[in-house]
Structures are given as C-alpha cells and as structure tokens.
Design a protein around this nucleic acid. Structure first.
Length: 551
RNA sequence: UGCCCCGUGGUGUAACUGGCAACACGUCUGACUCUGGAUCAGAAGAGUUCAGGUUCGACCCCUGACGGGGCAGCCA
C-alpha cells in the first residue's frame, strides 16, 4: 500500500535533501494516559509510525504523563494494546516522567540564567496579571527576585515546603507578548499527588508546555508532529530549547480528525461513559480504537482509512461513509460468508419429504476461492428473513410473495403457495411453499432465472444467537455546542434475541468476523461464549433496496 | 478587537513548485450476478471565498477584504 504524499512528507523530503538531521527521521506518538485512544489518535499513530517506517527511521511511544491527577495505569496499558493492535511497534517505550530529574536540572539552568523565577501569585492573580487577548499583561511583583532567592525557593518547592497552588516556577519572557503563551508561562506547579509511575518522589510537576519540547529534544526527535492547537505554542518551545542551548526538533502541526455522526473529544467520550450513554470505553458505538475493535473493525481497515483521508492543515470533517467503505473493502475480501436469519419467519416446503435432510455445499468467500466451501443442512422447515416476504409486494420487490418464485441460496427454487396467519393479529406467522427438485444448485435446471435469492436456515439445525444491531451514536452530522447530547440517537442499539444461524457458527470465538449473507458483517462479541453466542453488527452491506424503498 | 492557522466539486485530499483542476468517498445511470453484495462500464458535479496586483500566463506569488477555526488552565 503506497503511502500518499502529504505536506509533512514534503518537509521531510526537503530536510533529507538538505541533510538537516544527518538523514535521520525520528518521530514519536505522545499520548497523555488520561483516556482511551480514538480514531483521531489512530490518524496520528499511522502518521508518526508510518513516517518512521517509510523513511527507515524510528518512532517512540512516549507517554506525556505530567499530570498525576488525571492519569492512570489503566490508560497506559490500553494505549499500548491499541497501538500494537493497529499493527505498529515502537522503537522505545518512554515516559515524560523518565525526564523529571533532567527537566528539573534544565529549570535550574534557566533560573541561573535569569530566565525563570518563582512566583507567589495564586492562580487567580496569575490570570489577572496575564492581561487579555487584546490587552498586554503586567509583570508579576515577584518577577525580579534574585537568582539565589529563586534557586532557594525552587529547591524548597521540590522539597515539599509549600502547599499546593502557593507558588509556581515561571519562564521570564514577555508579559506584553501578543502571543499569550509567551506571557511568563508556568513551568512547574506544586501538586502533592501520587504519580502512577514516580509515586511520591515529586510534589512539583512540570507543565506540558515545559516538558513536551524538552522531551522531544532529549529523544532527538527530528519531526515533532502534533495537532494545530499547538501552533501558537511553537514559539515557546523554540524559546526553551534555544535558551537551554539544546537539540532543536522541528514541530509540524496538522489538523486533527473529525468524523461525522460522532464526537471525538476525550472529555465528551468520558462523559458518554460516565453518564451511561454507552456501556464503556469499548462500547462498539464508541469511536475509540477499543470500541471499533469490539465492533469488528480490522486494523487494516483503519490504516487504509488513515491513508485515504490524508494529512493537511485545513480543519475538516470526514464522512463516516469513507471509514465504512474502508471497512467493507477489507471485510469483503476476508470475512467468511454464512447464513443467519435475524428476524425469523417460518417457511414450510409442502412437497419436501418429512424428516429429510440434505447437506448442501456453500462457498465461504466468493472473493477468495482458497477459503473453500462448507456444508449447510437443508430440510422441510426453514427460517427466512421476515422482510423477505410480503403478502402484497411493493414495486421492484424481488423477494417472496404469494405465487412468486425465488431461489433459496445454494438450494432450490421455491414458489409461495400461501400463508398461515395469527388469528388475532392477522400477522403472517408461516409461509407455505413448494419446491422444484430439479432446480437444486448445480443441477442443469438450476440455471432458471428468478428475481430474487434468499438466505435461510434449517429450523431443526439452527443455532440460536443474540445480535446487537448498532447504528450511529448521533442523529446529526456534527454534534456540537452545549447541547451536543440532545442529538444522541436513542436507537443506536437494537438487541435481537433468538436469531437463527447455520450450525457452522456454533463454535465461533470472540472477534471472529463473518458476513451474514445479504445482512451485513458481524463480529463475535467479547462477552460471547459457546452456547450463548452474541454477535455485533459491524456494518451493513451496501443496500440498494433500502435506498429504493426509502424513496 | 491582539496574535496565530485555514479557505479547491456534497465530503476528504491532489495538481510535477506559475502552463486553465486530478483521485477517492458519496450521488445517479447501465451491464453482470444463485448475496438488490462484489465486480465492470459510464454520468452529473468545482473553474479553486472575493477584489486588486505581479506575470505572456496563478489554485499556486503579493496586498486587502470576507468567511471559518484556535489562544486569556497552576489541563494536554
């Protein structure tokens, strides 16, 4: 799969030509372990690891774990699992917390240089002194402390002598800068919190803005790829490495991914989980990598997607239809075909011998002959899909109705002779038909043309399964604003009990993927077990009939 | 109203670094088909936000306007 060219690759090509980093390409994927990864992160992962792969470089996985109050081991584990599942292997597994001591020394350097100071202003005061978007800020009264005093205070901050929030270490830059990030940004805050890796070794923690650039520098990252919102921070990162006189990585920003009919911010995803709108981070309706995995997505399909959406600096929203196309592209080639009836309707073949059973041969994947064939039992009483029968067929309806002939897939051509109705509700509860023994698949007469072909399952041999039908989580393309939750799709999950599947499925294991012919692609749910099978609908097939019927 | 980023068919990206716009998704036809799937063939759809400028020539360069987005956490 040739990677598509994008502006970042052009930058790298030029750097390589100019021999800017001795021909090295070193990237990294730097998540904060404060939540599960989503499809937007997948874009970044494919980008960073893909760059390293294609330019024969290296890519680290580095956790930017600078805020112990929000980060957890659970997240660092899930992130590693997701990156691996996507098909990537990091050069080094690193943590910003590995650099806490080095970062502290760097800070001391800046203090000694007169470029950083301990500030006693509280959070409110700092905000007040910062000024506004249009007005300059003003200097902190603590801005001109002596180097000695700053050193002493900073050391005592580290030693735990001061309570949370009482002091900060700030870079001494320019309170009048039009770029707010340059108005003496906080480098360290006091936080008496236990860190998931460093425990209680520290009570001061570096801000992201202070830690991130230096971490990249320490790792000798050549191309530090990040999202657009950090563009305004780049001058600050540049200032730090220049004042420190250390290795200077090049930051390149790109637009984060937005997808229609879903939300992508960690905050909102967390809220969906906490409010019970979904059943967890890995709920198949979630755009998280673990959710997509449970839904039945393959790593290949997500990588293909990342490749097709490209990379740019223009903010955009990708149509989920593109993601689904990538999904079907993979599943069509790789998923075994089976027959399963989601909403069963009994079909009795009047002229078929009682108790007779035939083993009919069915193709496992018409796209891949090497996947072979299997036997499917056929008998007098079958189940067909409710929607495949209409007593009074609408126009262009190719399926079964009274007097009409259809093909039963891999079996015979049948003709509907009548129906049995529920006396009270008038609902059709059974369809009667006759079959033509000459038309079995493979026989000469089988070439007779009929309008439709139906899937079916032999009633006596069927295995009962439960099926989760998933639909989009939101009813609107761009769920935004304060009332984003109002557009949650109340019907995003429909649970079907006692669906009928062919016996092959009895031993299906979690994560196994199938195409239920004519119905869609399905994946065995993680909570499924033998005897109590649960399938998740990954995505429907392209359905031209659904389109016709709608209009 | 300060600074920064962005503006190409419905959507997402391209355009060999200035030679009148390509690919994919989607949409619509038709063919084929024992999945109304897949596949195949074809069509519609933008003159590149706008106005100036530079140039023989601009989506590409310059200026300005308009539109969208980001930034005032001791979050990342």
């Amino acid at each position: 799969m040739p990677e598509r060219k994008n502006f970042i690759r052009e930058v790298i090509d030029n750097d390589l030509k100019a021999n800017k980093y001795e021909g090295r390409v070193q990237t990294r994927f730097p998540p904060e372990p404060n939540g599960y990864l989503h499809i937007g992160h997948a874009k970044s992962i494919c980008l960073n690891f893909g760059l390293a792969r294609d330019y024969k470089g290296k890519c680290n996985l580095r956790f930017d774990d600078t805020n112990p109050t929000k980060e957890e081991m659970e997240y660092v584990e899930s992130i590693q699992e997701d990156v691996r599942w996507l098909g990537f292997e990091w050069d080094k597994l690193l943590y910003a917390s590995d650099y806490f001591e080095q970062l502290f020394e760097y800070a001391v350097q800046l203090i000694k240089k007169g470029k950083a100071y301990v500030c006693d202003l509280n959070a409110d005061k700092i905000r007040e002194y910062r000024g506004t978007l249009t007005e300059p800020g003003k200097d902190s009264p603590y801005r001109n402390r002596s180097v000695e005093e700053n050193l002493d205070l900073f050391m005592r901050m580290r030693n735990g002598e001061f309570p949370d929030g009482s002091r900060t270490l700030r870079a001494k830059i320019d309170m009048a800068s039009p770029n707010l990030n340059m108005r003496d940004p906080v480098m360290y805050r006091i936080l008496h919190a236990t860190h998931h890796r460093t425990g209680d070794a520290w009570c001061i923690y570096p801000m992201y803005d202070w830690a991130h650039g230096q971490s990249d520098s320490i790792e000798r990252i050549t191309h530090s790829v990040c999202t657009l919102e950090f563009t305004d921070h780049r001058p600050l990162y540049d200032w730090f490495v220049e004042e420190l006189g250390v290795y200077h990585p090049q930051q390149i920003e790109f637009a984060r991914l937005n997808l229609t009919y879903t939300v992508m911010s960690k905050r909102k995803l967390l809220q969906l989980v906490e409010d019970g709108n979904v059943k967890g981070w890995d709920d198949p309706r979630m755009p998280t990598i673990s959710g997509l995995r449970r839904r039945g997505y393959s790593p290949e399909s997500i990588r293909l997607f990342a490749d097709r959406i490209g990379v740019s600096r223009a903010e955009s929203t990708v149509d989920v239809a593109l993601l689904e196309d990538c999904l079907r592209d993979y599943l069509n080639k790789h998923a075994s075909r089976v027959m399963a009836v989601l909403r069963p309707l009994k079909l009795v073949i009047e002229n078929y011998p009682d108790g007779g059973v035939e083993e009919l041969e069915a193709v496992n994947n018409p796209e891949d002959a090497s996947m072979g064939t299997r036997k499917v039992p056929f008998s007098k009483v079958l189940y067909i899909e409710k929607e495949d029968f209409r007593e009074t067929p609408p126009k262009k309806y190719f399926r079964l109705s009274p007097g009409v002939e259809v093909r039963l897939r891999y079996a015979y051509i049948i003709k509907c002779t009548g129906v049995v109705k529920d006396e009270k509700t008038d609902e059709v509860i059974e369809v009667r038909c006759t079959y033509d023994p000459e038309t079995r698949s493979g026989l000469p007469q089988s070439s007779r043309k009929v309008k439709g072909t139906l899937h079916w399952v032999s009633a006596a041999h069927a295995v009962n399964v439960n099926v989760n039908l998933y639909d989009r989580l939101f009813n609107v393309e761009n769920p935004g604003g304060d009332n984003w939750k109002d557009s949650i799709n109340p019907n995003s999950l429909e649970v079907l009990k006692d669906c009928k599947a062919e016996p092959t499925l009895a031993t299906a294991k979690p994560q196994d993927r199938f195409q239920f012919e004519r119905m869609g692609y399905f994946c065995v749910d993680n909570d499924s077990r033998e005897g109590s099978l649960v399938f998740n609908r990954t995505v429907t097939l392209r359905d031209t009939w659904a389109k016709i019927e709608k209009s």
